[in-house]
Design a protein around this nucleic acid. Structure first.
Lengths: 126, 126
DNA sequence: GTAATTGCAAACGGTTTGCGATCTC
DNA sequence: GAGATCGCAAACCGTTTGCAATTAC
């Protein structure tokens, strides 16, 4: 049975209050302000539990560190190639394309992920 | 200046003759048939050089090993969630969407990546 | 009470890197 | 001969895991 620990709550609360798509390390650093002796193992384990429960989503298809966000409607991300920042896009996920691929290939398609790459506004000016 | 070594040629040749999107480890294993004492460091260094030169493309998915393919026209990939296999899709990359995002956000958008997830034909039957 | 969760530290796996030797141009 | 590349082994870094102690229910 799933339990309610202050560690898990702190991680969820943090993710609920940010749009910055933090890495596990950033989460660890921030949560330590409240719970100084929390361990990284606990952070990783909780992120796994929360993902399995569908409470959060793991972002990233480019092999870098994983980033985490609260589960929300399916949407795309933009990744700045200079500063590494990840930004939510309004563009809604195109669900029709999954069916199109499924029909064409005979595969079962559950979902897709798209990430855009380029320079964010700040980084264009430097 | 870039040199032409048998190690680099063997890696390129292997990638030219496969559609299997091998991992660095698989490349290492296969190339060792020809060059028994090639090292993993050399494989990784060459894959980096070849990527920088635009000769190959890295397919990176969070949490999984990187896979490599010969550079070709922009296209999407399907990853089977059961066997882990990566398959090229015919679906051409939608270039219009990059401009759409750029206009909407003010970001510079160089490209995007899309990956589909589900079950390939073989894995559906098991 | 018992099973989930924790902190700690060690292990893991893919990838990178420092080195002195070797090879390509 | 200069500089790129090599093989080797150690280091790196994000993540996972084993364990005994603690905690939620």
């Amino acid at each position: 049975m799933r339990r309610d620990t202050k560690q898990r709550e702190a991680i969820l609360k943090l993710l609920n209050n940010t749009r910055s798509h933090p890495t596990a390390d950033q989460i660890y650093d921030e949560v330590r302000a409240d719970i100084p002796n929390i361990s990284k193992g606990t952070v990783y384990r909780n992120l796994q539990v929360l993902e399995n429960d569908g409470a959060i989503t793991v972002i990233g298809i480019n092999g870098a560190q994983s980033r985490y966000e609260i589960k929300q409607n399916s949407h795309y991300h933009f990744r700045c190639e200079k500063c590494g920042g990840v930004i939510d896009l309004d563009e809604p996920a195109d669900k029709g394309i999954d069916k199109k691929i499924a029909t064409r290939t005979g595969f079962t398609v559950s979902h897709h992920r798209t990430e855009f790459y380029g320079l964010c506004k700040d980084c264009q000016q430097k």
